[in-house]
C-alpha cells in the first residue's frame, strides 16, 4: 500500500505543478536586471564592487598605458592588446591603450583588478554578438562608450512559485 500512496503522491505533485507559476525568462523580450553598473573597483577600499562582468569600459583620461592589464590577461586569455591611439593624453606618454578581443575574453575581470589607476571597468552589457571575428575586437574608442542597456526583469518569489515579472 505504501507503493500505491507513493504513486498517488507523485501523480498529485505532478498535477499540482501544472498550475504553478513558471519563471521562464523570455530572453530577447525581457532581460534580467543586474546589480549595479557592472564590476567596478572602489578606489577607497581597494576592493571590487559587485556587478555583472560584462564588456569593459575604458576611461581614456585615467589610462597611462602601463600594460598591467595586458600582462594580467596574458596568463588567462591573451585578449588584451595594447594599440596606439592617435590622441595622446598627458599622462599616457606611450599613447597606447588596451584593445580587447571579445572572441578571446573570458570576462574574469583580472584586468580590472590589475589596473592601478582605475581606468578599466566592466559594464553590464553582455550582448556582443557579431557576424565577423573583426566585429568582436573593440578598439579603445569603442571601449570608451558607455553602453545603453535596458534590463528590468527581476525575480519575484511568491507563494505560488518564483516568477520573472
Amino acid at each position: 500500500m505504501g507503493t500505491a500512496t507513493g504513486i498517488i503522491k507523485a501523480l498529485n505533485s505532478g498535477i499540482k505543478h501544472i498550475a504553478i507559476k513558471r519563471f521562464t525568462l523570455r530572453y530577447p523580450e525581457e532581460k534580467l536586471k543586474f546589480v549595479g553598473d557592472g564590476y567596478q573597483f572602489d578606489p577607497s577600499t581597494g576592493v571590487g564592487i559587485a556587478g555583472i562582468k560584462g564588456r569593459h569600459m575604458l576611461f581614456h583620461d585615467h589610462c597611462t598605458g602601463c600594460q598591467l592589464c595586458s600582462i594580467a590577461c596574458e596568463g588567462v586569455a591573451e585578449a588584451i592588446a595594447m594599440v596606439k591611439v592617435p590622441d595622446s593624453q598627458t599622462q599616457n606618454k606611450k599613447s597606447i591603450m588596451p584593445q580587447i578581443d571579445y572572441g578571446k575574453c573570458v570576462f574574469c575581470g583580472l584586468c580590472v583588478d590589475a589596473c592601478p589607476f582605475y581606468a578599466l571597468y566592466m559594464t553590464n552589457d553582455y550582448e556582443l554578438s557579431s557576424f565577423s571575428k573583426e566585429g568582436l575586437i573593440y578598439t579603445p574608442a569603442q571601449l570608451a562608450v558607455k553602453p545603453y542597456v535596458q534590463q528590468d526583469s527581476e525575480i519575484q518569489i511568491t507563494d505560488r512559485g518564483a516568477t520573472h515579472g
Binding site: G38, V47, G48, A50, G51, I52, F107, C108, L110
Partner: peptide, 18 residues
C-alpha cells in the same frame, strides 16, 4: 560575483569584491 558560472571569485587574500 558578477558571473553566472565561471566566477573567478576567490583570490589569495580574500574574495574579489564585496
Amino acid at each position: 560575483t558578477g558571473a553566472r558560472v565561471t566566477h573567478a571569485h576567490f583570490v589569495p587574500g580574500g574574495v574579489r569584491n564585496d
